[in-house]
Nucleic acid binder design. Structure first.
Lengths: 207, 207
DNA sequence: TTCGTTGTCGAACATGTTGTTCGAGTATGG
DNA sequence: CCATACTCGAACAACATGTTCGACAACGAA
């Protein structure tokens, strides 16, 4: 199923590589299908035998990884401890594992399609993750707003990080996110013991 | 300077209106210059007499407002009280004042160019706004990270808000942003009196 | 190895978009 | 009223897109 004809694998790999390389050079918007064909040295009809258009290629390039990410995120939900804020940590790890593709797709040069995909993915998960806690706390903050806030913050940090060559490391980045996000979130949830959570994480290395 | 020939004003207005309307209908990416021409009922050469291409039109559509926003933001910096987190309030007010254009340019259907413009604008301002405070507090958090976090959060809330027809109102939204942002920010700045700031704002209406 | 299947190639094609040019006409503002 | 400056519309070359087709080569199963 995954590995069909060897030629197909080869072609898709070549096209995908050329695609990522071209995005890093010129940005997604400034690439034509023709450019990809030239770079990959692949026949025109061959491309359209595999992808409907440029956008489909973009989606395909991200699809496998997205599934993997979805898995990572789903696996961490059940426990749902309110002190561990974030699918953000999982997101950062995932990005770090696929640095090259993230750099092309989520960085300065990528289109906004991938960004929207991620936003949906993280946003939906975080919303459902937060809903019971907010309800229990009797908060008057709409869960949509809270989810949107932390999703955007995480994705913003992600793109900043991608554009800065993934330094500091994923663990440090997750720590920083945690430190900035936790106080507000715990406040919204009506917890009083903010200081504890903050100091629990403040001792971690940051650079 | 601003108001030249009456015909020019008329043409630009018609083109701009058609542009905004079409974005709301189909989204920025799915519009061609030809579509704009047809909708506006304007000659092809006339369009290119005023705009280099579609992207230039997008920029132009946002330019005046952006200057206004820049002014609003610059006007609020000097005081720089660390308890008032945000250029975010000014941003929300500005968006509310120009609802129609924001809906086309910053909403679901807009391109990501406007988003980047805003991100730069807010991000730069917030970074310089925060730098001295973070330095004074001796924080180990990079100012870039902190600025990115709150800029993205604000813009995320903005786009969510735009796509939800600007409800709740700008003041309520600013309150919510404040409540989510202030605790983490004050913690990062080493302030201990978080509870005070939170309760100062919690009594405000949210719906 | 053989052989049917399947992917690739390359050229050609219709279609649509882009940005430019030009001459003729018309509204504008001084 | 008149010179200026804008608009129009058509035509144009350049390029991108997505499809089609026949010829050929690589694949993998027997």
């Amino acid at each position: 199923m995954a590995g069909q004809d060897r030629r197909v694998r080869r072609t898709k790999r070549i096209i995908g590589d050329a695609f990522v390389a071209l995005i890093l050079e010129r940005g997604y918007d400034r690439i034509t299908v023709q450019d990809i064909l030239d770079r990959a040295d692949v026949g025109r009809s061959t491309f359209y035998a595999h992808y409907r258009d440029k956008e489909a290629l973009l989606t395909a390039a991200f699809d496998d990884m997205r599934e993997e990410l979805r898995g990572d995120l789903a696996a961490m939900t059940p426990g749902a401890p309110p002190d561990r804020t974030s699918p953000a940590g999982a997101l950062f790890d995932h990005a770090y594992r696929h640095r090259d593709v993230y750099q092309a797709l989520c960085g300065r040069h990528g289109g906004n399609l991938v960004y929207r995909h991620l936003r949906h993915l993280i946003g939906d998960l975080l919303r459902e993750h937060l809903r019971p806690h907010l309800a229990a706390a009797g908060s008057d903050l709409p869960v949509d707003v809270v989810a949107e806030f932390y999703t955007s913050a995480a994705l913003g940090l992600l793109t900043w990080w991608v554009d800065h060559d993934f330094r500091p490391g994923p663990t440090q980045l997750a720590h920083m996110y945690q430190r900035l996000a936790a106080p507000g979130l715990l406040t919204a949830l009506g917890h009083g013991d903010i200081a504890a959570v903050i100091h629990e994480r403040t001792d971690a290395p940051t650079r």
